[in-house]
C-alpha cells in the first residue's frame, strides 16, 4: 500500500510538533520553569509518528517514561501536555502525573509509565478486554532496550503469544538504556532475534525513516487485526539528548552526539523526501514550521496562564468509589 501525499506531509508535521515541543520543554527545564525531571525524545520522532499513523482512534497505546512523542502522535493537545508538565490543574492528569505519567483515556493513551516494562502486560490486558468485549481495537506498546531486560516484557510477549492477542510490541531501540549502551543490556544484535522464542512474528525497521516505520506498522497492525496474534516491531533510532535533561552524556564517545543531527535526523529525511517528490514546497514547509511554532507558543502560554492545582486536590482521585456502593 502506498502512502498518500497528505499523510506524508502530515507525518512530517507531527514529527515537527514533537521536536519543537521537546525543544521547548528542554528550554523551560533549563530555565528552571519545570519541576521534577524530564526525558526527551528528540531524534526519535519518526517512531511514534509512523506507528500512530497506522492506528485507529480506538486503538490504545502505552507509552514510556520518554513518552511525550507517543502521546502527541496519538493526538494529544499540546497545551494540556505542557500544563501537565507544569503541574497545573488543566493538565491531562490535573497535575498529578507530570511528564512521566501522562495519560488520556479518551485518546486511547493508557499512560506513560515511570516503571520500565510495566506497560507491556497492561497492553496485553487492553487486547484481552477488546476480545472479551467484542471491540475491534488493537493494542500497541512502546518500550526500549532497557525495558527489554525486564521480566514483565517477557511475560507480556509470552502471554500475548499464548493467547494470540492483537498486540504490537514496538521496541524503540535508541542505543541506550539510561546511561549505559545497548550491549550492556541485550546479548543479541536485534530484539527480533528473541521473537522466535515466543513464536511471534517480528521485523526491524529504520526508526529514523518515518515511512519505513509506517510500512512496518501497517503490516504489524494488519496482522493483529486479522487475528494472527502479536507482532514485535523493532525500530532502530537515536537518542540525541541524555537519559534525562541535565544528563551531559559524558559516557558517550566524543563527537558522537554532535554528529547525530547530521547523520540521523528524521525531519530532514522526510522534508528532503517531500521536496524531492514535489509533495511540498519550501514555502509550504515554512508555513508548517510557523504553524507549529505558534502551537508551541500557545501551549506554553496556556500552561503558564492555567491555575495551579489546589494543595488539597492531593486528596482527590485515590479511589473512585466510597467502597459502599457510592461515589468517592
Amino acid at each position: 500500500m502506498g502512502i498518500q501525499p497528505e499523510l506524508r506531509l502530515q507525518m512530517y508535521e507531527t514529527m515537527l510538533r514533537i521536536r519543537r515541543f521537546e525543544e521547548e520543554t528542554a528550554a523551560l527545564f533549563a530555565a528552571g520553569d519545570l519541576p521534577g525531571f524530564v526525558h526527551l525524545s528528540i531524534g526519535q520522532e519518526a517512531v511514534p509518528t509512523g506507528i500512530c499513523a497506522a492506528l485507529d482512534p480506538a486503538d490504545t497505546i502505552t507509552a514510556t517514561h520518554r513518552g511525550h512523542g507517543h502521546i502527541l502522535a496519538k493526538g494529544a493537545d499540546m497545551g494540556r501536555m505542557m500544563a501537565e508538565l507544569m503541574g497545573k490543574r488543566t493538565g491531562y492528569c490535573a497535575g498529578k502525573g507530570g511528564s512521566m505519567h501522562i495519560s488520556s483515556l479518551d485518546l486511547g493513551v493508557l499512560g506513560a509509565n515511570g516503571i520500565l516494562g510495566a506497560g507491556q502486560p497492561i497492553a496485553v490486558g487492553a487486547a484481552l478486554s477488546a476480545r472479551l468485549l467484542g471491540e475491534e481495537r488493537i493494542s500497541v506498546t512502546f518500550f526500549g532496550e532497557g525495558a527489554s531486560a525486564q521480566g514483565g516484557v517477557h511475560e507480556a510477549m509470552n502471554l500475548a503469544a499464548v493467547w494470540k492477542l492483537p498486540v504490537v510490541f514496538v521496541a524503540e531501540i535508541n542505543g541506550w538504556a539510561e546511561l549505559s549502551p545497548y550491549s550492556d543490556h541485550v546479548s543479541v544484535p536485534s530484539l527480533v532475534d528473541r521473537a522466535a522464542g515466543y513464536g511471534i512474528d517480528a521485523a526491524s525497521v529504520d526508526g529514523t525513516d518515518v515511512e519505513a516505520v509506517l510500512d512496518g506498522a501497517r503490516e504489524a497492525v494488519e496482522r493483529c487485526r486479522s487475528g494472527e496474534g502479536p507482532v514485535l516491531l523493532e525500530a532502530r533510532t537515536q537518542r540525541w539528548h541524555g537519559h534525562f535533561e541535565g544528563d551531559r552524556q559524558l559516557y558517550r564517545p566524543e563527537g558522537e552526539v554532535a554528529a547525530l543531527p547530521e547523520l540521523y535526523d528524521p525531519l530532514v529525511l522526510q522534508s528532503d523526501r517531500l521536496l524531492e517528490l514535489g509533495i511540498a514546497s519550501e514555502a509550504e514547509l515554512d508555513a508548517i514550521e510557523r504553524r507549529v511554532a505558534e502551537e508551541v507558543a500557545e501551549a506554553v502560554l496556556f500552561g503558564r496562564n492555567s491555575p495551579e492545582s489546589a494543595p488539597e486536590d492531593a486528596l482527590l482521585h485515590v479511589y473512585s468509589t466510597d467502597g459502599r456502593g457510592g461515589a468517592a
Binding site: L110, P121, I122, V124, G125, A126, L128, E155, A156, L159
Partner: peptide, 13 residues
C-alpha cells in the same frame, strides 16, 4: 507479574 498486569490493562479498558 504478566497476568496481573494484563488484568490491570483489561480493567482500564
Amino acid at each position: 507479574l504478566g497476568f496481573m498486569g494484563a488484568a490491570v490493562g483489561a480493567a482500564l479498558t
